[in-house]
Simulated scan of single mutants.
Amino acid sequence: MSGRPLYVLRSAAELAAVVRRLAADGWAVRTGLAVPDEPWDLTASRTVVTGPVADDDAVAGAVLAAARGAGVVAVADAESVTGQALLADLARIGPVRRAPQPADGDGAPTTAEPDDGGDGLPLTAEQRALLDRLAAGDSIAAAASAEFLSLRTANRRIAAAREALNVRTTRQAVIEYVKRR
Rank of each mutant, 00 (worst) to 15 (best):
R133C: 01
I140R: 13
A135M: 01
A135Q: 00
S150G: 15
T110D: 10
Q127W: 02
I93V: 08
L121T: 07
R98K: 12
P102V: 07
L149N: 09
R128W: 05
D115A: 12
I140T: 15
S139H: 07
A142Y: 00
A99R: 13
A142V: 06
R98I: 14
D104M: 14
S145N: 08
P114T: 07
D106E: 12
D138L: 04
G105F: 05
A136F: 06
R98D: 01
F148N: 09
R128N: 05
A142F: 00
A103M: 11
D106H: 09
V96F: 10
S150D: 12
D119M: 02
P100A: 14
S145Q: 15
P109N: 06
F148V: 11
G118I: 02
G117T: 11
G105P: 04
G107N: 01
E113P: 00
A135E: 02
S145D: 14
T111F: 09
A136P: 00
D119P: 02
G105R: 09
E126N: 06
A108L: 14
D132K: 12
A136L: 12
A141G: 15
A108F: 09
A103Q: 07
D132E: 12
R152G: 01
A136M: 09
Q127V: 01
Q101E: 14
A141C: 00
G117S: 10
A103V: 12
G105D: 05
A108M: 10
R133N: 10
A144L: 08
D104N: 03
S145G: 08
R128M: 11
P102M: 05
D106L: 11
I93Y: 07
L131S: 13
F148S: 12
I140K: 10
R152D: 09
R97K: 11
G118F: 04
L151P: 01
D116G: 07
D104E: 13
V96L: 00
L130W: 03
R92P: 02
G117E: 04
G118Y: 06
R92E: 15
A142H: 03
D115H: 15
A146L: 05
D115C: 14
Q101C: 13
A135R: 02
P95G: 13
P122V: 06
A146E: 09
L130F: 00
G120A: 04
E113C: 06
G137P: 05
P122R: 13
A142C: 01
P102Q: 04
V96D: 05
L130G: 12
P95D: 15
S139C: 08
Q127M: 06
L123H: 03
D138E: 11
A112P: 00
R128Y: 05
G94H: 01
A99M: 08
R133P: 06
